[in-house]
Each structure stands twice: as C-alpha cells, then as structure tokens.
Simulated scan of single mutants.
Amino acid sequence: MFKKRILNSAIVIFFILLISTTSFAKNIIVDVNNLDKGIIRINYSKNTDNMKVLITKDDNQENYDLKLGVNYPLVFGNGEYTISILEHIKGNQYRQVEKETVKLELEDEKDLYLQSTQIVNWNESMLAIKNAKELTKDIKDDEEKIKIIYNYITNNIKYDNEKAYIVQADYIPSIDDTFKFQSGICYDYAVLTAAMLRSLDIPTKLLMGYKSDIEKYHAWNEAYINGKWIIIDTTYDSAYVQNEVPIAMIKDSNEYKVEKTY
C-alpha cells in the first residue's frame, strides 16, 4: 500500500500538448533486438534528463522515465505500438520529439513476464536472485518454488509504514535495497516477488490497483502455474504470516481491481 500512484498520473493528460510533427526513419530510436521477448530499449544520443518514453497501443498508454540501457515492456498484447520520446517543457507539459512504431508478435505472451524491465529490474548477480536460486536449488516443481519464495518474503520482509507516506511519485523500488534492509512498501514487495520468481523461469506479473479491503493504492503479483495465473499478495499476507495467523497464499480475483500491469 502506498499513498501516491506511481509512474504515470497527472502528467499523462499533458502529453498531447505541444506535440511536434517531426517523423523519423523506423527503428532508429527504438532498439527491437529483444522484441521477440516483448521488450524494447531506447537509443537516444541527446541529454535524457527529465524526458519520458510514452508507449501507446490503441486506447492504452503507459509512460516511463527515459533511461538508457533498460528494457521497456510492451504490456498491451500483440499488435502495433507507437513509441514516443517526450521532452519536458514546463510543469507537467511535454512535447514529442521522436516517434516510431513497432509490431509485437509474441508466440507466447507469457514470455514478457520473465524479463528484466525498468521496474522489475533484476540480474543474476543480485543477492536476492542468488537467494532465490539457493532456496530452490533442489526443487523441480514450479508450484513448490512459488511457495518457497512466497514463504521467504512473507516471513522476512517487514512493512515500512513511514515510507508509504513519504514515497515520491516517480519512485521505483530497488531490489537490492528491499532485500538488504528486509523492509518496504507493497511496491517493494511486489517487485521483489516478481524478480525472484522470474529468475526461476516462472512468468510473474507486477500489478497495481486496489484491493477490496484496502483504501490505498496497492501492488501485488500474478504467477503462472499449472496453466493459469494465480494471485499472490506478499504484502497483505506478511502481516498474517509474521503474526502466525493462517492465510491462504492464492487470492480471489474478485478482491482485486487491476489498473496497471507490468
């Protein structure tokens, strides 16, 4: 749970303002080398400070801070996407300076949820990822692996109430910090859960929105197992687990309202 919505919020309504009409050759700005995994990178030689990447498909859109060397996920399914580079003008106003299109044709859309992205930014050298491999080194069954990672996080990560009120709108969790300090808000829990499970080749989504009995904006996960997506909420369950109160790991989808998927 956290006080402010993360990533795109009020700034989205200003993205249409001050748009340039310049067009550029296809796939100069957008690196499509890993498009078959559902992710892109941005090649941009100019100063990237305070710039945005806007990803749109049909009526769907998502924006991210522009960073070089990170993966941006195409989360709206197969089809044609427009990738725009936005330059800050003032306040919440941006103008488009570059635009390219890409066509996503994944054979298996679950592959996207195994990748490292700007938000779920993991690699094999991280202590959290090494820990996930160690905890499950003798386990072959994916369902058992999920239970092991779930048990580790709900038993060990403490909820940081103070952080929930001071976190900034552009906050992105550090997997290393969450694992090192063993604390965080729901966003931290969900990113850590996604990273650890993805590193074990278990497709895992990071979801944001609302839970029926929580007023604040919330983050949780879905993991793919036995031919279906199951909901896991390590933040919510940690309070029960750490107080030795029984609670089911798999949640009811009717209790959740999804606004964003990463």
Score class of each variant (00 low, 15 high):
Ile39Arg: 06
Ala169Phe: 01
Thr193Arg: 00
Phe179Ile: 07
Trp122Pro: 04
Thr178Gln: 11
Lys110Gln: 10
His218Asp: 02
Glu255Lys: 15
Asn27Pro: 02
Thr56Ala: 12
Thr178Trp: 07
Val245Phe: 09
Asp58Trp: 07
Glu215Ile: 12
Thr204Phe: 03
Phe15Glu: 14
Glu107Gly: 15
Ile146Val: 14
Lys147Tyr: 05
Gly227Lys: 07
Lys147Phe: 06
Tyr72Gln: 08
Asp49Thr: 12
Gln242His: 10
Tyr159Lys: 13
Tyr262Met: 01
Thr234Trp: 07
Val191Pro: 00
Ser116Lys: 04
Arg5His: 10
Ile225Met: 09
Thr193Phe: 08
Glu162Trp: 06
Asn226Pro: 00
Ile16Ala: 11
Lys251Cys: 02
Ile129Trp: 00
Asp252Ile: 12
Ile166Phe: 09
Lys163Trp: 07
Val75Gly: 03
Leu104Gly: 05
Tyr159His: 13
Lys158Gly: 03
Tyr150Glu: 01
Glu62Cys: 05
Pro173Phe: 06
Ile230Cys: 01
Asn121Ser: 08
Lys251Ser: 02
Ser174Phe: 11
Ala128Pro: 00
Tyr94Leu: 08
Thr204Asn: 05
Glu100His: 08
Val30Glu: 03
Asn27Tyr: 12
Lys37His: 13
Pro203Gly: 10
Lys180Val: 03
Gln118Ile: 15
Asp31Trp: 07
Lys163Asn: 07
Gln168Cys: 01
Trp122Phe: 15
Asn60Asp: 15
Gln242Leu: 07
Glu143Asn: 14
Ser9His: 12
Asn33Phe: 02
Tyr150Val: 01
His218Thr: 03
Glu162His: 11
Tyr210Gln: 11
Ser9Glu: 12
Ile6Tyr: 11
Asn71Tyr: 14
Val97Lys: 08
Met126Lys: 04
Tyr81Ile: 04
Ile40Trp: 02
Leu192Gln: 04
Glu255Ala: 14
Tyr210Glu: 09
Asn34Arg: 12
Thr22Asp: 11
Val30Gly: 06
Lys205Asp: 04
Lys216Cys: 00
Pro73Ser: 11
Asp36Glu: 12
Asn151His: 02
Val30Ser: 06
Asn34Gly: 00
Ala219Asn: 05
Val241Cys: 10
Met126Ser: 02
Leu114Asp: 06
Lys163Phe: 15
Ala190Ile: 04
Leu7Pro: 03
Ser84Ile: 01
Leu86Phe: 01
Asp31Arg: 05
Gly209Asp: 08
Lys140Pro: 00
Phe14His: 15
Leu192Ile: 03
Asn254Phe: 09
Gln96Glu: 15
Asn123Asp: 13
Ile16Met: 04
